[in-house]
């Protein structure tokens, strides 16, 4: 969608469509499967589904994809950071944690992904782990009771694993 150079393997998408019998009632499941492969929904993939599934159009697929917050239309980083900003996390200091990550990775407000493409950052409404507030989740691993210092250390560890700064 933004010239990121992702090449689409339509055979893989055909497999997904076959799995769901080309039925339009499975559209959300289809999009979830596509997002599992690419970590986001490439425009070509949405167009392809809109063309191949009866009674769907690319515009309708795009409409569904933009309706739900679970779908991303932009490529995501290798590490997907989710900062919980539900009520409990918010009052226990999720904003300082979020700002610390932004500063550390140089991701300005309104942006999704760090410049090196390694990290993407978003806030979510509630992860259902209010007892551990404030919570940060990185690629499905939960980091409880975060502070700006603690989250800095977590990111430093990840950067080290990536080999260097």
């Amino acid at each position: 969608m933004n010239g990121s150079g992702t090449s689409i393997d339509f055979r893989a998408i055909d497999k997904i469509l076959e799995k769901y019998d080309y039925k339009k009632s499975y559209l959300i499941a289809m999009l979830q499967s596509v997002q599992e492969i690419y970590k986001y929904l490439p425009e070509e993939a949405m167009t392809y589904i809109g063309e191949k599934v009866e009674d769907l159009s690319p515009a309708t697929v795009y409409g569904v994809a933009t309706f739900y917050a679970q779908f991303s239309l932009e490529p995501k980083g290798k590490y997907e950071i989710k900062v919980c900003d539900g009520t409990a996390c918010h009052v226990r200091g999720s904003m300082p944690v979020l700002n610390a990550i932004r500063n550390k990775l140089n991701i300005t407000e309104g942006k999704l992904t760090s410049e090196n493409g390694l990290f993407s950052l978003e806030t979510v409404s509630c992860l259902g782990a209010c007892g551990l507030a404030p919570v940060v989740v990185i690629n499905d691993k939960v980091y409880p009771q975060m502070t700006s210092d603690a989250v800095s250390i977590v990111i430093d560890t990840l950067l080290k694993e990536e080999g260097g700064n």
């Binding site: 159009s57 690319p58 515009a59 309708t60 795009y62 409409g63 933009t66 309706f67």
Partner: peptide, 10 residues
């Protein structure tokens, strides 16, 4: 026709 217009966003 074959549907080129749609709703987007929420």
């Amino acid at each position: 026709q074959h549907g080129v217009l749609g709703f987007a966003n929420r």
